[in-house]
Design a protein around this nucleic acid. Structure first.
Length: 414
RNA sequence: GUGGGAAUAGCUCAGCUGGUUAGAGCAUCGGAUUGUGGUUCCGGGGGUCGGGGGUUCGAAUCCCCUUUCCCACCCCA
């Protein structure tokens, strides 16, 4: 194993790249703040049961994708594969149930042991939100509208579409599951191998199978709609009405099913066609039973998570690095003065850099490469008059400025 | 976990059916230009051809193993 290689599925985020990532995170944080969500940070590892119990015994995330290990004290720990379970745990252990409704935003690394592809990594980053304590679909509307505005602010509105579905309440879901399995049993031998497996473990997943044969069979399957209780139906109608009032465009997709066991009622995905098979960029849903299942007070919840790397690949406008002022001495004597002036500028809040070596020409080139807006030139003549020359790097114009007035003059460069 | 493609300089890539010292563009460094950047011109450095083994007089090129990336499936952000 070549040592100087990052672990499979992990990668370094280099300075140019991290500007895009930070931009995605900051837009998410700012948009969440507009909707009243406060930031929370939870540990990147938890006791294994936190995830194993909540995500479901049949989900792939639990059965084959967790980074689980034993620490020196013999505890079974897992690097978080997602953060809803961790935030729900914090909600319970931190006594936050006293402060409902509660809106939380988070960001950070997640870990899944999967086969890497573009937009699919073993360590990746998510931003996400969770809203606890509101059973009314108004909460779902807010959460989805927040996701929609977040993506719009990133300039991605034209590249994603929001797909929406309902899984119904627990009763609807159980009833539908029975109907679906009863129907599919008759076609068992004609289903794909994967789907025969799913028939036992997670039959709803067969609905969004990509296999041609499965699709043909699924086309004739009973619709989720038929098994819906009146309550579940009203919930979904209210959600759709709310989304229209909130100005969120969406496409109903009756075959949208999500993998984690804790979802009920609302499920949604914001999807792009620009990232190959990894088109889901932001996704979530309602998880009313989760907190109670973990041992907390019965508390409804709804939220989503978005993939920072996937979004960063789509975002076209990356913020520019800060452009410094370059301080350039002409001589050894000037270099001492240059240090003083550079520090004076920095303490005044002006980004400044001083070339470390080379002749004048070389330092000018370096200043150009740094993207300097202006250079401060320390010539012997000017210094003898207590002044320096300030060169505007965009226009090439240059003027002499007394050192005492330098900070004010440079502030004008913005 | 299953199936397929790829890996040559910091980056993007040439290198035909195995044949001398492995190339180009960009980047980098130096010079033309020791009080002035972007353009131009000249020159330099940089590669165990992903790693290991095999076939051969001879392997970047053919074979096997391995690592990583990419594509599809599974699944997901």
């Amino acid at each position: 194993m070549p040592a100087l290689q990052p672990v499979r599925g992990t990668h370094d985020i280099l300075p140019e790249e991290i500007l895009r990532h930070r931009h995605v995170e900051e837009v998410a944080r700012a948009t969440s703040a507009l909707y009243g969500f406060a930031e929370i940070e939870t540990p990147i590892f938890e006791f294994t049961e936190v995830f194993a119990r909540t995500l479901g015994d049949t989900s792939d995330v639990v059965t084959k994708e967790m980074y689980t290990f034993e620490d020196r004290g013999g505890e079974r720990l897992t690097l978080r594969p997602e953060n809803t379970a961790g935030v729900a745990r914090a909600f319970i252990s931190g006594g936050l149930s006293q402060r409902l409704p509660l809106k939380l935003f988070y960001r950070g690394p997640m870990f899944r042991y999967e086969r890497p592809q573009k937009g699919r990594l073993r360590e990746f980053h998510q931003v996400g939100v969770e809203l606890f304590g509101v059973a009314d679909p108004i909460a779902d509307v807010e959460v989805i509208a927040l996701g929609d505005q977040f993506l719009e602010t990133l300039g991605l509105k034209h590249r994603v579409r929001c797909e929406l579905n309902t899984l119904g309440d627990m009763e609807s879901r159980r009833a539908y599951r029975e109907r679906l399995v009863a129907y599919l049993r008759d076609f068992r031998d004609r289903l794909s191998e994967d789907s025969r497996e799913r028939l036992e473990r997670n039959p709803l997943r067969i609905l969004d199978s990509k296999d041609e044969r499965d699709r043909a069979i699924v086309a004739g399957a009973p619709a989720m709609d038929e098994a819906m209780t009146d309550d579940a139906r009203r919930f979904f109608d209210a959600l759709r009405d709310g989304l229209e009032r909130a100005g969120v465009a969406y496409v109903p997709n009756p075959r949208l099913v999500r993998g984690l066991d804790y979802y009920c009622h609302t499920v949604f995905e914001f999807i792009t066609t620009d990232l190959g098979a990894q088109g889901t960029v932001l996704a979530g849903g309602r998880y009313d039973g989760l907190v109670e299942q973990m041992g907390g007070p019965a508390t409804p919840g709804v939220g989503w998570a978005a993939g920072v790397e996937r979004l960063a690949m789509l975002v076209e406008t990356a913020p520019e690095p800060t452009r410094p002022v370059a301080v350039i001495p002409f001589s050894a004597a000037g270099a001492a003065k240059g240090l003083e002036i550079t520090q004076m500028l920095r303490r005044a809040g002006i980004a400044a850099d001083m070339g470390y070596s080379g002749n004048l020409q070389k330092r000018m080139k370096r200043a150009d490469k740094l993207g300097a807006r202006a250079t401060v030139l320390l010539g012997e003549d000017e210094l003898s008059r207590g002044a320096v020359s300030v060169r505007d790097m965009a226009t090439g114009t240059q003027e002499e400025v007394p050192i005492v007035g330098l900070v004010d003059r440079l502030a004008a460069f913005g």
